[in-house]
């Protein structure tokens, strides 16, 4: 359904030209996404996980065309993304759900107008009554009542607003949904409702998801395949069960070790040392080497490429050499 090949996105974060000239500074680029490849088969969910600044949200935006890529390609249903984006009939097949349901809904619009906007824009249904009927149907589908369409966003709780966002995304009958942290602004009991709803919709409508999250436990619940990102690259990619039962990359293992777990009451863990380096001046070789317990001279000098290891794709010299 979707294929990303060596996708990259750089941002110019230089200071203004005059200041650069005075201070004799070079241009500075931030490599937010630096060579990311994946495919998502129809009806499946690929999740990208990683800490803040690893580039996962940038990938989400590249995939729906909100940013043009600096390098690499995205193919949607075997056609280049730029071609697909130019054609309304193709464009309506992809939609996005954002993190913050307080910021992504227009507070001055009634919910029915918010949900009807894509229907009107793509001219999917004709006539006021038919549109209203479709909106009612969508609201029912996400667990709200058709009468809720008359209300404004502020009358709803966070979880209900996220349901409205989902209804809006579904209104153009998409096949592919990009979900950027759809539950991280929600409380845990409500998060479970939204995750259940998304899984149900995937089953009934055959949706394909690209799911972006920093929460590994959430990712485990929804994914078929998972990519772990670190400083703009995918360091490990594997079927969800494989990744969680046999994590191979030292960073993946460190991430899992770092999560406080309910069963670990009173247990002391050994946290990973150090911090995520700046993507403006990433470390040489493998970006994880300053924090990695397995790093050696090769890791400092040479950037590891993704190699198959069992069912996984792992970018790590230590794993490749069997030092892991």
């Amino acid at each position: 359904m979707l294929e990303a090949n060596d996708l990259a996105r750089y941002f110019d974060v230089s200071r203004p030209a005059l200041q650069r000239l005075i201070a004799r500074e070079p241009r500075r680029t931030l490599r937010a996404v630096d060579g990311v490849s994946f495919t998502i088969p129809k009806g499946q969910t690929l999740s990208l996980v990683g800490e803040s600044g690893c580039g996962k949200s940038t990938v989400a935006r590249l995939v729906v065309g909100l940013y043009p890529p600096s390098d690499g390609t995205v193919a949607f249903d075997n056609q280049p993304l730029s071609v697909a984006r130019a054609d309304p009939a193709q464009r309506q097949r992809m939609q996005m759900i954002f993190q913050d349901p307080y910021a992504s809904l227009n507070p001055r619009w009634r919910v029915r107008d918010i949900i009807a906007e894509p229907i009107r824009a793509f001219k999917l249904v004709d006539g006021k009554d038919a549109i209203l009927a479709r909106v009612g149907q969508l609201l029912t589908q996400v667990g709200l009542a058709p009468a809720d369409g008359e209300k404004f966003p502020h009358e709803f709780s966070g979880g209900q607003r996220q349901r409205i966002s989902i209804a809006r995304a579904l209104s153009s009958n998409p096949e592919f949904l990009v979900c950027d942290e759809p539950t991280s602004a929600l409380d845990v009991s409500v998060q479970a409702q939204i995750l259940n709803l998304m899984k149900e919709l995937q089953r009934s409508l055959g949706l394909t998801y690209l799911f972006i999250s920093h929460n590994l436990a959430v990712v485990r619940q929804v994914s078929d395949r998972v990519g772990v990102m670190y400083l703009g690259r995918i360091v490990e990619q594997a079927p969800a069960e494989t990744l969680f039962t046999t994590p191979r990359h030292p960073y993946t293992r460190a991430l899992m070790e770092a999560i406080p777990d309910l069963d670990m009451t009173g247990r002391t863990r050994i946290p990973v040392g150090g911090e995520v380096p700046s993507p403006i001046s990433p470390p040489s070789g493998c970006a994880f080497h300053p924090r990695c317990p397995l790093a050696n001279d090769r890791c400092k000098a040479e950037r590891p490429l993704a190699q198959p290891a069992g069912e996984s794709l792992v970018a790590c010299h230590a794993v490749e050499e069997g030092r892991g």
């Binding site: 479970a192 485990r220 309910l262």
Partner: peptide, 21 residues
């Protein structure tokens, strides 16, 4: 509240959500 926390060590088909808010 405890039941609605997604587990890290296994995949469940349907999470136990608390209805409403």
């Amino acid at each position: 509240l405890m039941a609605s926390i997604p587990p890290l060590d296994r995949r469940v088909d349907k999470l136990a959500a608390i209805e409403g808010s």
